[in-house]
């Protein structure tokens, strides 16, 4: 740019309906392209800049937004508007996201997305609920044992497929009565639950079927007396159709307009991974 003619961005109200629409599309992008953890919902738009039309047209929205974790796992097909935000007393988790979204011809394209999530501080949870259990590390031995026990109980009462663990998503150590509360995702395998001898030999079905479990596993009473009965509740989601990988097509012309179809979502991401665009919404 010539001297003194710097590119200027516009200051827009964060609660402007157009900005909110862009932010909602950005959060939707995150929810659709995560394979682990929970769906997030928009909480606050922190900053917005709108960059002027480029030579190609359209304008770019640069957003900083805060999100909150809902109680729906990302594999749960429930629309996020129907998912509850996790209340502070259950140890809420916040997302902090940066987006760049192109708006062109009324369509929104996420050019860049980066989110980090972090649980609320112990002090803040204590302020609203002094006795509420805090989030426990997912690699805690007691947590792993509780998940194993819960999954075993679920499979023992399941007359269909054997379900195997996909990921542990949250855990809390409950002091009174002593118990471990866990939430985890599961997936159906080609083994029959009642007949499994070696779960390691079971394979995920081609037509994926996921589920999500919540369980409270009580500490066993010494001496074998009657204790609290463990509670395991799993919701199995509808099967997901097999995704066919695109095959090279020699008849496809190499020139002309680019396909409007969005590229495939990224492969499974490791825990704590950041989702980075570009991708079409």
């Amino acid at each position: 740019a010539p001297p003194g003619v710097g590119l200027a961005y516009g200051q827009v109200n964060c609660d402007d309906p157009e900005v909110e629409q862009v932010a909602m599309a950005a959060v939707d992008y995150i929810n659709k392209h995560r394979s682990q953890g929970y769906k997030h919902t928009l909480n606050q738009i922190d900053k917005v800049k709108v960059w002027p039309p480029r030579p190609t047209g359209g304008e770019v929205f640069e957003l900083e937004i805060d999100t909150l974790e809902t109680t729906c796992h990302v594999l749960d097909p429930t629309p996020v508007v129907n998912c509850s935000v996790r209340p502070l007393r259950y140890h809420a988790v916040e997302g902090d996201c940066d987006f760049r979204v192109l708006k062109q011809d009324g369509q929104l394209f996420v050019l860049f997305a980066k989110c980090d999530s972090s649980p609320d501080s112990a002090e803040d949870v204590r302020k609203v609920c002094p006795d509420c259990p805090l989030l426990a590390p997912l690699n805690n031995t007691g947590v792993a044992n509780a998940v194993d026990a819960a999954l075993e109980a679920f499979n023992a009462n399941n007359s269909g497929s054997y379900f195997q663990l996909v990921e542990i998503t949250r855990a809390q150590i409950v002091p009174l009565p002593p118990a471990t509360y866990v939430e985890f995702a599961v997936a159906a395998t080609d083994c029959v639950a009642k007949e499994v001898t070696d779960p390691a030999k079971c394979n995920l079905l081609a037509e994926k079927q996921y589920g999500f479990c919540r369980a409270t596993i009580y500490e066993k009473v010494l001496g074998g007396g009657p204790g609290n009965a463990d509670e395991v509740t799993c919701t199995v989601f509808p099967t997901q159709p097999v995704v066919l990988q695109p095959q090279p097509d020699t008849n496809t012309p190499t020139s002309g307009a680019a396909s409007a179809a969005p590229p495939p979502p990224p492969a499974n991401l490791p825990a704590g991974a950041k989702v980075v665009g570009p991708l079409v919404v």
Binding site: N43, Q44, I45, L68, V85, A92
Partner: peptide, 27 residues
């Protein structure tokens, strides 16, 4: 605006464009 001497002109409510409203609660 025309005001009497010694009386501040009302500036109206201060609109802060950002950050926007909190939809649920602040963490």
């Amino acid at each position: 605006k025309v005001v009497q001497p010694g009386v501040d002109a009302a500036t109206g409510p201060l609109v802060r464009p950002c950050p926007g409203r909190i939809r649920h609660f602040k963490v």
